[in-house]
Amino acid sequence: MNESITDVMNAEERLVFALRALFWRYGYRPYRMSKFEEYDLYAKNKDFLISEDVIVFTDKGGRLMALKPDVTLSIVNSVRVKKGEVERLCYNENVYRVPKGGVSFSEIMQTGLECIGDIDAYCVGEVLCLAAASLDLISQRFVLDVSHIGLLSAAVASLSLPKDAARKVCGYVSAKNVHEIMSVCRENGVSEEKANALSELTSLYGTPSDVMPKVKRIAELFFAEAEYAELSAALSVLETSPFRDRVRVDFSIVGDAGYYNGVVFKGFVDGVPEAVLSGGRYDGLLKKMKRDGGAAGFAVYLDTLAPIFRGKESFPGNGAVTESAESVTGKKPVYAKGCDIYEV
């Protein structure tokens, strides 16, 4: 009996284990949720769900319950953070929803983290760094695309479009559909300068050092300097990270769920045709639940990794070598132990 625990794990289990170890080292303590939530939570926050379809049943006491379609909503609903403090939590949970384009419910394994409370730009930067480190555990060929919903919203708002046209333009930005953006702007009498600036913002793709000077110029035109500063501050945390050259600024990233309102990001690994990680800042959800402070987090969608799981016992990334993520933020990590967070 010389096998270690990791010897008997399959590739997915090993990855989950490595991710949890990474989060733990940065002070994120595991958080376990009940499988069920009262349906009322989702009914009141449908705008914040990726898919509105929820599996509902009547509990013994007659209460209408639901199988979790989303983890973030449940965590924000359950966790109370004292003023001035930050709670760092990580999870590994199944959610139940209809995947995009799907025809029936699926059980989807999600691993992720949430940083809730009195958060600042550094916290958002730390979450970005951990997202990059998580991708590195999956595959060494990855990119982390970062955007800012507030900056994009300010740009679209400054076009003074009718509501329906503004909604369409947001969709065109996420599809990098410059020809339709120009067409809607022409139809609605938007100035050529602003239409061109939004098109440029849509087409931009590159490292922060290449792209951010252009974003700054565009943000000034749309009076979105505060949003630019927020994005810039979060990205600056990554400058000391070993993953800085894997980060791209891309405003086609708009976030899957409706609760994102600041920095948003998605992670891609070579060989998987869709995002394998998604996250961002979601202060709006806390505000709606009448809580103080802000929040940021992300989830790794393990179900999307099937193309690189197949026939492999380990990942092409650093999944088995969790030490690689030791200095993801360029600073000394903090470790979680039980319910406490302490420095080593």
Partner: peptide, 10 residues
């Protein structure tokens, strides 16, 4: 274009 391909083969 596929979104992931666009990133890795920009």
């Amino acid at each position: 274009a596929n979104k992931a391909s666009h990133k890795f083969d920009f």
